[in-house]
Design a protein around this nucleic acid. Structure first.
Lengths: 336, 336
DNA sequence: TTGGTGTCTTGACACGTTTCAATCGTCACA
DNA sequence: TGTGACGATTGAAACGTGTCAAGACACCAA
């Protein structure tokens, strides 16, 4: 408890009058060493306040005990929940999670991956900012570092991935609105270049015969308000009676603007969001939304990763697709 | 680009027909080596796809190149913004950020800190789950690992800390309401055992002569709704005309319940929140709220940390206190 | 030629582990 | 008493860097 900077296995050995090999054995394979000796070593460890040096272990082992999660945005609730799921698995393996935030910037992503490669991390879970097949990712794989794709699983058979079925999610939302009697339905989305947006739209279009598309530049509340203005300004006989938004922020924006204009939700206009973020339930009118199994996504990704670690070269890649669920609240069904 | 598992500085040296010391110099002090040689080494590095092994560097250096941020809850927007601030500084130093999530569980916190100690991290930024003076924290400091306290600065002169002045925040909110002509004001808070809640209350009480306290069991929207019910049920002549909530989730709950009962915000009742989370501006009635300089908090904490790293033993600890700002929106001032 | 100076390069060690083969006792059995 | 076997312990060699004192070399002035 009192040795100033740091003490090594060597000093423990000296104090316990054994060799360093024995100390190492006490730490890693205690059953190999006689109880009396073991106790002497443990006492020495306690007396010196010895703490293992992981750098040295890593050097010897050839890889570190860290698993990296590379996400687009740490402040996005979707990713924080995924991270929690990952943690719950990684914790049980004696490894640590290291979260890297790319901010959707490919250059930053590149730097981060290079650093992770230098760290010789145990594995990487990533939602790539740019292309799925990043050259550095290829290099990581070639080097034997397992990589699992999160939420970008489409069409990559040559690695493990987890994702949620966005087409199904769109279908669920639209089917619910149709069932509630709506015929004129609007889809408010971000750029269709984002795969998730395109898939959700496609799913909705497959069940809503006349789906009117409002493509906004971003997935923000501000854009939601703008979309709502354009919808509300339509003549009543052509105006949609329901809106399906590509995410909850858009939906909150629509809700806010509609309320400001005195339209009643859901009676004058029904709204469905996507993601089921925490604040969806807390909105002025609680929001119906399509929920994704976010923590489960993280857990499964981590399990695939350790599967790959254990399998070694015999590993066969798997693509896991989850199903989203519709959560119905008062923004689509009048309960008063 | 093609060597299967990994290649070391030794193979680079061989390929470039120089000693390993020269390769090391090219990497770390390129000005020491002749341009021609330098180029030969760089070519060899490219040809072999060589990547530095950070474990070995760490072992040599005695510490890793990671800075740990230990937070209570990764999915809390407050902490994610703090983390972003930390990142923005740490990135410029060639180090990496590793985010650890304690979930307010002291046992988890303990395990995490032990692992960080084994990693020989460069420094730790922490919002402790339990006591400020954790025995493991003491050990880290004794071992020479700098520790900076985040948002728990009160009364600890023996280390660096950053925090926001919650008393001032409470005062700002209440003063604003008084200025708007309100005389009967309610404070809706979580347990006063949480220092932040107590401070915000104290600040508000110092300017609002008759402040009625509603102490709820948690800082959630659900509790906000419950509080709103109790307030709305009071006879009109005794009912507060304004509510100051200890955080935004409570405020959103109050807003939701008041709206549901047909009370107009801000005319029938004004509401101020705290934290200025992203969804405060997106609420049905945009919420006035007390904003904390969250990213700045993270940036400053990181700067204090590196200050301590550079100063060495001559370092003098500093406690930085930030001032919050009131953001006025429509939940307290009628703009229609 | 000698000595000195300055620029590049290098050999060798240390950092703290893990692991493997080898050693040392001890004990049971023939 | 000798032989084997078995359990406990250890010496030594790696893992891949960074550093430092010392060496090599070229050049210039005396």
């Amino acid at each position: 408890m009192n040795v100033p900077p740091t003490s090594s296995i060597k000093e423990v050995a000296q104090q316990a009058r054994v060799s360093i090999a024995t100390v190492s054995n006490v730490l890693n394979r205690p059953e190999l060493v006689a109880p009396a000796t073991r106790q002497r070593v443990l006492d020495a460890i306690a007396a010196l306040g010895y703490v293992r040096n992981d750098s040295a272990r890593q050097l010897r082992a050839g890889h570190s005990r860290m698993v990296a999660v590379v996400v687009l945005d740490v402040s996005n609730p979707f990713f924080t929940d995924v991270v929690r799921g990952v943690e719950s698995i990684v914790d049980t393996t004696g490894n640590m999670v290291i979260v890297c935030n790319t901010g959707e910037d490919p250059a930053r992503e590149r730097r981060q991956l290079e650093q992770l490669e230098e760290q010789r991390v145990r594995g990487v879970l990533i939602t790539p900012a740019g292309e799925n097949s990043h050259p550095i990712l290829e290099r990581l794989i070639k080097r034997g570092i397992p990589v699992v794709l999160v939420d970008r699983g489409a069409g990559t058979r040559n690695r493990c991935s987890v994702a949620v079925d966005d087409v199904l999610g769109g279908r669920l939302a639209a089917a619910h609105l149709v069932e509630q009697g709506h015929r004129r339905i609007a889809f408010v989305g971000g750029p269709l270049a984002i795969r998730q947006v395109a898939d959700r739209h496609a799913g909705a279009a497959s069940v809503a015969t006349s789906l009117r598309l409002f493509e906004m530049p971003a997935l923000t509340t501000q854009c939601g308000r703008t979309a709502a203005e354009r919808i509300a300004d339509l003549p009543a006989h052509r105006r949609p009676t329901a809106v399906f938004c590509a995410n909850d922020l858009l939906a909150l924006g629509v809700l806010q603007e509609m309320t400001r204009r005195g339209m009643k939700v859901p009676n004058d206009i029904a709204i469905v969001g996507y993601d089921d973020i925490e604040y969806a339930a807390a909105a002025a009118v609680p929001l119906s939304s399509v929920a994704q199994p976010r923590e489960q996504l993280g857990r499964t990704a981590a399990e695939l990763l350790f599967g790959e670690v254990n399998d070694g070269p015999t590993h066969r890649h798997r693509q896991v697709l989850f199903e989203p669920e519709l959560v119905v609240r008062e923004s689509t069904v009048d309960r008063s």
